[in-house]
Design a protein around this nucleic acid. Structure first.
Lengths: 340, 340
DNA sequence: CTGAAAGCGCTTACAG
DNA sequence: CTGAAAGCGCTTACAG
């Protein structure tokens, strides 16, 4: 295996100093055009690439962003939530566009994630993506702040802490979705998903949902809210429990599409017709939402835009620019699961 | 912002030399147990993390793997093929398990991907994942070999080159799927997907398909094969063209699930009943396959296992161990789109 | 078991 | 516009 060329090899061939090679390669204005061209030609010929470890070490930044995906340990099968998977896709694309490399890692919620990447100088900053008990999560966020780690996160705004978040208007999404189903004549809503400060996104959706009910003179029946976390299986179980309880309802609002899909399956297994007997609505608009039977009405979170905003915000944080938390709108996607 | 501690800071506090700190932190057997404990305690207290840039530079390896996702530029919307997305998920998990970091990047098929990651010492090796015209792709592979880049790839075996691949038994998968539908009484098969050396995976599926037809005394009608690449839209178009041609057929074999899903939609838009009028089968078993209506019969490629094999194989290649190309079995997933 | 020293391949003041 | 030199923070022979 021939050893890789260094900037000294190029300097030697070009008849200039190594410093000049370094400048020429980075298009420094301090270098003569002719020299620059010669150096670059030789670099190309030798298939030379700057050693990033050396340049990062010297310049103390890495042009690399880290993505930390974390999940609630309760969900321990090996599949990533499809919503986060599509975020992962859009973040990867956004990083390429901005000229950053992306380091991806998984952490369990209970791991000790002392921002290993940033501390070890492998990344300039971190994007946090995942669900988990927010109360536990908040502790970690505080640690990150104390360590001066530069990061942005996906999720609801955390008013009590100086954190840059990018998230969706969950409240409005929940409101809009509920209102739409009310227009279709449904009156008795069940909500599947934790509605507490342990799950702020779900909670906001629930609050929007309740507001829509109240604004339409409908009653919020607390006993029709069952906890569920974002998996199909959990949605199935929660819906099954609801059905067994014997309470009557004509719509199930799944706090996420995965929950809604599981709920729909539970309903159909028990002989209910969707949407005639019970309408079902979800949240996220994951790819499979348009393929369920009937196709799922949901609130779309724009993952492409979210990925771009997350990356752009983090780059600004790294550069010390001022950045504000962004609240993206959701869009109502009407399909057939809500009765039109 | 306080500056990060270095190994010298720890050495000073521990009253030992910096070399000893370095050894203690890497659990070298050359260091006294007591010294080691003291050093590690201080490191923890200062929240010290080894600077990876410096250690990689010095030791000339990085404990990082790079994943190069490439796509045919014809598919230029921002969504990654869901099959690769789930591979991405499993590769990420496999890397964490093996103690490697993962750098992810996108490349267009026509980019100059001179293994930028490896050359720049950011990664010890590369995993190649994507579809594209294989003839173009092969050129790139040859370049990588010439550069002594360590890599493994997902896909069909390339017999002519010394390359480690991990892939599925596409031939057998195509055979098995076709045979199953023949059992269900279908006789006139259309195949949507390029069947040539430009797309070896699809081609193998096609060949397996043809063999199954021949073994069952059915005719292979070449005019019922239409090119398509792996998007829903392309599948829709190819199926629409097929329908317009007026030829008769009672089964469509989509070379991938995405193609099959698009074809199913085209059939239903034209008033055909699936599977009564026309059966549809796909390949991959992407998440949405179980949610289409009717649910799609397909050949499952085990992405979890694939990710693990890819990572393990690459690590072996990096360590100079001998590795062979792996051919994973596919499994027939029978749902309702094939008539039982 | 420990320390002094060299050096990985760059970038960047500093001097001209 | 260019070059000589220092130094980023480690790892690893080498010597003891």
């Amino acid at each position: 295996m021939k050893s890789k060329p260094t900037s000294f090899d190029i300097a030697y061939r070009a008849g200039v100093s190594q410093s000049t090679v370094s400048r020429a390669l980075r298009n420094s204005p301090l270098v003569n055009e002719e020299t620059r061209q010669k150096v670059q030609a030789i670099a190309k010929e030798l298939n030379y690439k700057v050693d990033k470890n050396a340049s990062n070490l010297r310049s103390q930044h890495s042009s690399t962003l880290a993505l930390l995906l974390f999940e609630d340990p309760t969900n321990d099968d090996s599949f990533i939530n499809p919503f986060f998977l599509s975020m992962l896709g859009s973040i990867t694309k956004a990083c390429s566009d901005k000229g950053y490399d992306l380091l991806v890692s998984f952490q369990q919620m209970n791991d000790d994630w002392h921002a290993e990447f940033e501390d070890s100088n492998k990344a300039d900053g971190i994007i946090l993506l995942g669900y988990g008990d927010f109360v536990d999560y908040e502790e970690k966020l505080i640690q990150l702040i104390e360590q001066d780690t530069r990061f942005v996160r996906w999720g609801a705004d955390v008013e009590s802490l100086p954190i840059v978040s990018v998230g969706c208007d969950n409240f409005h999404g929940g409101y809009q979705l509920t209102e739409h189903v009310i227009m279709n004549g449904k009156k008795y809503f069940a909500f599947l998903g934790e509605a507490s400060s342990h799950a702020p996104e779900f909670y906001q959706r629930y609050l929007g949902h309740c507001k829509a009910l109240a604004d339409n003179n409908l009653v919020v029946d607390k006993s029709l809210q069952n906890d569920a976390f974002s998996t199909e299986e959990s949605g199935y179980q929660a819906a099954a429990k609801l059905i067994e309880s014997g309470k009557s309802f004509d719509c199930i609002f799944g706090a996420s599409d995965l929950i809604a899909v599981g709920a729909m399956r539970a309903l159909q297994d028990k002989g209910y017709k969707v949407p005639e007997d019970v309408a079902v609505i979800g949240f996220d608009d994951i790819p499979m939402a348009s393929f369920t039977f009937p196709p799922l009405t949901t609130a779309k979170q724009n993952t492409k835009l979210a990925g771009e905003l997350l990356v752009e915000s983090l780059i600004k944080v790294i550069n010390g620019e001022e950045v504000k938390t962004t609240l993206m709108p959701t869009s109502l996607i009407v399909r057939n699961s809500c009765g039109s």
